[in-house]
């Protein structure tokens, strides 16, 4: 297997609040390989945004990255970075597309200037060159009549167009890694598809690795090579997209997959996972999902499960995979869906 371009090891992030210390990220490990798309999925509050913001040193001021956490980019450990070091990484090595295009752009600066800014800083372009390059990039991300609109201000544009500008800003300094944190959630369905296509095309063209955060498993099936499932500050299962959809092992992944809406009415209604995630001020001793897990074993409440290797590319942290555990099959709901996916998602490999 190739060497990863980014490797996160035992990442722990906490937030100091008046109520106490929130253990938002509790030991996250993953690798990112050149040119691939890794999707991170999980319920709200599971730590997807915090994990990726940590990769850019963009967490709120009350955040602490625990000593011993490693974020390896080449030979450097970003977890040790001081504020001033980050500017060598942000935009240039790792860039980010944010969720809400309506609020992500500076309302008082022209779009062209906002796109040119990272080019001037990281690529050493002069103002005029950077403007030319920004124009080319605007065309590249599908902004029509870019020449006429380069000096527009954000308020003159629609959400979909603004998100293209946000993507152009992220691509401006030619990063190796692009993080997209729910880049289509705030947009209309028709626009969502356009934005996804732009991201996919740019990734292919630039051979970037992409970390794609989403709630939408349909989008995951569309864009991802590999998937990491997060719950309560941990990754509970990761594997290739086929492994996650067709051979999921963690009951939480089962829950997510059965809550996935499909266009087929035959599959019935959505199955939201009952219960709520644990309070991360007081993280539970055992498996954080245990109290919502219909398949929970006694040990789930007492001891955190280690990762069990399912295949060289697939692992899941659930005691159900232990040799001593009773045999459990995924719920019927999942099996029905798998048959449906088989017909609708044409996935090679």
């Amino acid at each position: 297997m190739q060497t990863p371009i980014l490797e996160v090891k035992n990442l722990e992030v906490s937030f100091a609040t008046y109520a106490g210390t929130i253990q938002a990220i509790r030991g996250v490990d993953f690798q990112l390989f050149e040119g691939e798309t890794l999707a991170i999925v999980g319920e709200s509050g599971s730590g997807k945004s915090v994990t990726t913001k940590t990769l850019l040193g963009l967490n709120a001021a009350n955040a602490t990255v625990k000593k011993g956490s490693q974020i390896l980019l080449g030979n450097t450990n970003l977890a040790d970075y001081k504020e001033k070091d980050w500017d060598q990484i942000r935009g240039k090595k790792i860039a980010m597309v944010f969720q809400d295009p309506m609020t992500s752009l500076d309302p008082t600066m022209t779009i062209g200037k906002q796109i040119a800014e990272p080019m001037e800083k990281h690529l050493g372009k002069k103002a005029k060159e950077a403007r030319e390059a920004a124009l080319a990039l605007m065309k590249d991300v599908g902004i029509p009549d870019a020449e006429e609109h380069i000096d527009d201000y954000p308020h003159q544009w629609s959400g979909g167009m603004r998100q293209r500008a946000v993507i152009a800003i992220a691509l401006a300094a030619e990063p190796d890694i692009l993080i997209a944190d729910e880049p289509t959630t705030a947009l209309d369905v028709t626009i969502q598809a356009q934005i996804l296509n732009i991201l996919k095309a740019q990734q292919k063209k630039r051979k970037m690795a992409v970390i794609f955060i989403t709630h939408d498993l349909g989008v995951v099936a569309d864009v991802a090579d590999r998937v990491a499932v997060m719950y309560a500050g941990k990754i509970v299962e990761k594997g290739t997209v086929n492994e996650i959809f067709y051979n999921p092992k963690h009951p939480y992944t089962w829950g997510l997959l059965s809550s996935m809406p499909t266009t087929s009415t035959a599959l019935g209604s959505l199955h939201a996972i009952p219960g709520t995630p644990p309070d991360l001020l007081y993280p539970p001793k055992g498996d954080a999902f245990a109290n919502r897990n219909a398949y929970a074993l006694k040990i789930d409440h007492e001891k955190q499960p280690p990762f069990f290797q399912v295949s060289p590319t697939h692992e899941a942290a659930t005691w159900l995979l232990d040799k001593r555990a009773p045999k459990v099959v995924p719920p019927e709901e999942i099996q029905k869906r798998q048959a449906y996916w088989q017909e609708h998602f044409v996935k090679e490999g």
Partner: peptide, 12 residues
């Protein structure tokens, strides 16, 4: 959000 995005550009 736009300051967060500006910070993510690495311009200091």
């Amino acid at each position: 959000d736009y300051i967060q995005l500006a910070r993510a550009k690495g311009i200091g």
